[in-house]
Amino acid sequence: MTPVALTVAGSDPSGGAGIQADLKTFSALGVYGTAVLTALTAQNTRGVTGVHPVPAAFVGEQIRTLLDDVPVHAAKTGMLGTADVVREVAAALAGRAAGPLVVDPVMVATSGDRLVDDDAIAAVRTELLPVAELVTPNVPEAAALLGVAPAGSVDELAAQAEALLELGPGAVLAKGGHLGGPESVDVLATADGVVVTRRPRVDTTATHGTGCTLSSAIAALVARGVGGPGRWEPVVEQARDHLQRMLEGGASLGIGSGHGPVHHFAGIWSV
């Protein structure tokens, strides 16, 4: 059977993040991609100038109609935008055969533009995290979900990952890219404990869509059967390897004048 993954997220016209990044990542990893749109954005590699939400009821209709026909082996959420959309997505996926759910709680763009309001953050915390098998916040997103100051060290990030685990998800991958330093350090927290995973930091400005790409790589690998129920470490390590190659290839694309995209097809085709 063809592995199928679903992304529920917003659109990025520049192609580096959101639905576009997710579908590219699914394809690069040999998975058939399906997509439900939550919002249109006006953005480029320099920033976001506007967001046009899709009505929550229609987001839910997209999900239900898709799942009535197409078997989905893993799903991920990205930018959901409003509290109503968050609640609708959680309700539409509840009890449906859509595979493990990876929640990327997209709240702030790489450019620094905030993409959600406080009500949406609260809805992610109470409605979406309890139905997620894995949640993948970065440093500011983890802090926003917990209502605390952003972590300033790996130890603080690990403590926040464990605190997020208490909110109901099966596992937490807290991404430490914002911590700086010569290594990019992520923290995986599960019921079995905390694992720290490291990669050399890539000196590049082509970082647009890194969070979307990592979470969609995880969903794609799950759809392909990597890991297994509750076995997140091999999935995370493979997804980080893929992201590392994409980051290393991003500068070669030369897209835009701001934070360019990673190269989603690094190793498949080159400039």
Rank of each mutant, 00 (worst) to 15 (best):
V4R: 04
A5D: 02
A9K: 02
D12E: 09
G18P: 13
Q20L: 14
A21Q: 12
K24V: 13
A28W: 06
Y32L: 13
T34A: 14
A39Q: 10
A42G: 11
N44L: 04
V48H: 02
V48N: 04
H52L: 15
A57T: 15
D68F: 08
V70K: 11
A74H: 00
K76G: 00
G78K: 02
A83C: 08
V85K: 00
G95S: 06
A97R: 02
A98H: 04
G99P: 01
V102Q: 01
V103A: 14
D104F: 07
V106P: 04
S111A: 13
S111C: 11
V116S: 06
D117K: 11
D119F: 03
D119G: 14
I121C: 10
E127I: 01
V131S: 03
N138P: 14
A144N: 01
L145K: 01
L145Q: 02
L146T: 08
L146Q: 07
V148T: 15
A149E: 15
V154E: 15
L157T: 08
Q160D: 15
E162Y: 05
A163D: 14
A163H: 12
L165Y: 07
E166R: 15
L179I: 07
S184T: 15
T190Q: 11
D192G: 12
D192Q: 14
V195C: 10
V195I: 12
R198K: 15
R198M: 10
R199G: 10
P200V: 12
V202Q: 06
D203E: 14
A206D: 13
G209M: 05
T210Y: 11
V222M: 04
G227L: 01
G230V: 01
P234C: 09
Q238W: 00
R240E: 14
D241G: 05
Q244R: 12
L253D: 03
G254T: 06
G256T: 08
G258M: 07
G260N: 09
G260T: 10
I268H: 13
W269M: 03
S270N: 12
